[in-house]
Amino acid sequence: MSEKMVFLALQDNEDARPIREAIEADNPLAVITQFPGVYKIDAPGRLVINRESVEERIGRAWNPQDIHLSLVTLSGNIDETEDYFALERT
């Protein structure tokens, strides 16, 4: 594996489901591994969660910082604005 990877893990629950769906839609290279109660999402270089993508799915306003309620662990450098939460490793 020469490419630098980032990852995050989310709780496997209803709060996190739209976040997972938004990640799958916006990060075609992301790979999801399921564990009991939690899943790990690995991606090469960058992994982004877009506010708009989550809001489309839940039909209301969503703050990227709400990810704090579902996040289990992460690896990578954080890039965070009002519009997205991203992990990077270049």
């Binding site: 109660g37 662990t73 690896s75």
Partner: peptide
């Protein structure tokens, strides 16, 4: 990760919940 996932796998609802609740802080700590 293995401990809380292990708790989930072994039917320990309570530990899964304190574990993930703590772990959500852990991302900030890391």
């Amino acid at each position: 990760m293995p401990f809380m996932s292990g708790a989930a796998y072994n039917g320990d609802m309570a530990t899964v919940n304190f574990g993930f609740s703590a772990q959500s802080d852990e991302s900030r700590h890391m």
